[in-house]
Simulated scan of single mutants.
Amino acid sequence: MATNKLRPDDKRFSHEYAQLNGHKYHYLLAKPESGHFKGTIFLIHGWPDCSFAWRYQVPMLLEQGLRVVCMDMMGYGHTDVPKVPPESIHLYGYKRASDDIAALAKELGAPRIILGGHDWGGMVVYRAAQWYPDLITHVFSVCTPFFQTSTTYLSTQDLVAGYLPQFGYQLQLAGPDVEAAVQSKEDVTNFLKGMYGGRDKNGKVMFQPETGVDVNVMKGGMGMTPLLDEKELEYYVQAYTKSGIHGACKPCPSLGYDLRGATMADDRTVNWYRTREANFKDELKITKTTVDVPVLFIIATKDNVLKPEMARGMGKHIPKLTRREVPASHWALWQTPDKVNEAIKEWLQGVVFGAKSVL
């Protein structure tokens, strides 16, 4: 297990904020100790996660001479959480995420960036490379395969009834049940423990891909996740209750802040599961269905949602594709961080920093 990871109070990164296309974003910013960097990499997290997802990867990337930007995406952590309705669901779509990444790159004075993603973030980085081919030089994705755009709309119900039954949880998350069930700090804590592999006192898991979150199991109390330590868990709980150490946050007694009134429902992260039609409509304007920049795809061989077989045929749409595998579940970033980092480092040194690379 890698030991050189960021801690919640680590001095190697700072909490920063930016107004991007009308909404406030929070992001973690880390630079090499020398202050000099040879390129900028943006890291995009998934669900249920936040910018701190990349704590094991940031130190390695700093060692490679990169400036690292880890964004809290729309609805997460300390980034704005627009309510839908009355706001448009497109705010949680891939196009809007791509636009906001481009806006932050411009604000940071980065005319060219590398882009890495996991889970939903993996889908964002592919689409961002299609929307902004002049900005993004290289892409890597952990767990998430590439799905080409289509002129035929398929709903999530269509996918679940067809070849992706393990996406059944998305139907549940798109509805109101989980959002309504996770309200208190205790709820948030149990929810996150369960999503990250914790079990209840009888050894039951809380989440199954085909059916989603078992609220009754969650409410009975979940054991500690093996993937986070106590301080990391508290960081996540703070992020998911809209409190924490910076920004427009409600105070929590343990850290000088108060959690009263903060709820999971305030977070709106499940809106990412309500964007399928919005994304489809946006993507009708994408003229090129391939991703032409060099791409590293890291397969998690034990992922029971984004299964390895879903990546078959990716090479047809990504001419410069590198594949690597790690023996991990969906939480590969934390479960096998050394192997993930080794794959990224090898790709950076062999592909990104090659003689013909332009950063």
Rank of each mutant, 00 (worst) to 15 (best):
R7V: 15
P8Q: 06
K11R: 14
R12Y: 07
R12G: 03
F13T: 02
A18F: 11
Q19T: 14
Q19D: 15
G22Y: 11
G22H: 09
K24E: 15
H26I: 06
A30G: 03
P32H: 06
S34Y: 08
I41H: 02
F42T: 01
P48M: 06
P48H: 09
D49T: 04
W54I: 01
Y56R: 03
L61R: 01
L62K: 00
G65P: 08
L66I: 00
C70G: 01
C70Y: 03
Y76T: 07
Y76K: 03
T79A: 08
K83Q: 15
E87L: 11
H90K: 14
Y92G: 04
G93F: 08
K95M: 13
K95S: 12
R96V: 10
D100H: 10
D100Y: 14
A102V: 07
L104K: 04
E107F: 09
R112H: 15
G116F: 03
D119S: 08
W120A: 08
G121Y: 08
V124D: 03
V125M: 01
R127C: 05
Q130H: 05
D134H: 03
T137S: 10
T137I: 06
H138R: 00
V139D: 02
F140N: 00
S141Q: 02
S141K: 00
V142N: 11
T144H: 14
T144C: 13
F146D: 02
S155N: 06
Q157A: 12
L159C: 04
Q166R: 13
F167M: 09
Y169V: 09
Y169T: 08
Y169S: 09
Y169K: 05
Y169D: 10
Q172R: 03
Q172Y: 06
L173F: 15
D177V: 12
E179H: 12
E179N: 12
A180Q: 12
Q183T: 14
Q183I: 12
S184D: 06
T189Y: 14
L192M: 01
M195P: 08
R199E: 15
K201D: 14
V205R: 11
M206A: 01
F207L: 05
T211L: 11
G212N: 07
D214A: 12
K219A: 13
G223S: 11
G223C: 13
D229P: 04
E230W: 12
K231F: 13
E234D: 12
V237G: 02
A239E: 13
Y240A: 02
S243V: 11
I245G: 14
A248M: 10
A248N: 13
K250R: 14
P251E: 15
P253C: 05
S254K: 13
D258P: 09
D258T: 14
R260F: 15
G261E: 10
D266I: 07
D267N: 11
R268W: 15
V270N: 14
N271L: 07
W272C: 09
Y273S: 07
A278Q: 10
N279V: 11
E283L: 07
I286M: 05
T289F: 15
V295F: 02
L296V: 03
A300K: 03
T301A: 10
V305A: 13
G313S: 11
K316A: 14
L321N: 06
S329E: 13
W331D: 11
L333D: 02
T336S: 08
P337Q: 06
D338A: 08
E342N: 09
K345E: 10
W347K: 00
L348I: 01
Q349V: 01
Q349I: 00
G350Q: 01
F353M: 00
F353V: 00
K356W: 02
K356S: 04
K356D: 04
S357P: 04
V358I: 14
